[in-house]
């Protein structure tokens, strides 16, 4: 990772499980650091105004807009992007469920939606339709795959329960 000679501007954080140090203007947005400096281009620029959700990442497990979070405030925080959602063990079950439900058209909004969906599933594996709609309401989708996404989140929840049961049973 690039390290500046000027330690005052350096920020250390954990991204997708890996400690990283980035240096530069502390006001630059997390999204720019991810895309430009760390090569993690899965988080998407949509509006830059926290209005569309395409840039959503997990910060310490909570979905946050990365387009306007300043990197200087994130020292010591843990960031998870779509690239790290599966925790290094292949696809997250929600990613697989989106494939199974064919919950996509253009796909541009999906990185952010999966991040928020995964956070919901971490709280409950049996979310109701209303729970899912509420959890994803900060995300805009223009192609109209909303109902497929709802089904994918529910399918992923069921898959998570099966996986947990298998682990317990083993």
């Amino acid at each position: 990772m690039p390290v500046s000679a000027d330690d005052a501007l350096e920020v250390a954080l954990i991204v997708n499980g890996t400690p990283v140090r980035v240096a530069g203007d502390p006001t630059r947005p997390l999204l720019a650091v991810l895309r430009e400096e760390l090569g993690l281009v899965g988080s998407r620029f949509g509006c830059g105004l926290e209005q569309c959700g395409a840039c959503m990442v997990l910060i310490d497990g909570t979905p946050e807009f990365s387009c306007s979070r300043e990197i200087g405030n994130l020292a010591g925080r843990t960031v998870t992007t779509i690239e790290g959602l599966g925790g290094g063990r292949g696809l997250h079950l929600l990613q697989q469920a989106l494939l199974d439900e064919q919950a996509g058209q253009c796909g541009y909004c999906l990185s952010g939606i999966m991040v928020s969906g995964a956070a919901l599933l971490a709280r409950t594996t049996r979310p109701s339709r209303q729970d899912i709609l509420a959890a994803l309401d900060r995300h805009l989708c223009r192609c109209g795959v909303h109902n497929r996404v709802v089904r994918a989140v529910q399918r992923a929840g069921a898959a998570m329960e099966s996986a947990a049961a298998e682990e317990t049973g083993a």
Partner: peptide, 8 residues
């Protein structure tokens, strides 16, 4: 879709 759900 497989690439897109991985963010690519």
């Amino acid at each position: 879709l497989p690439a897109k759900i991985e963010g690519r």
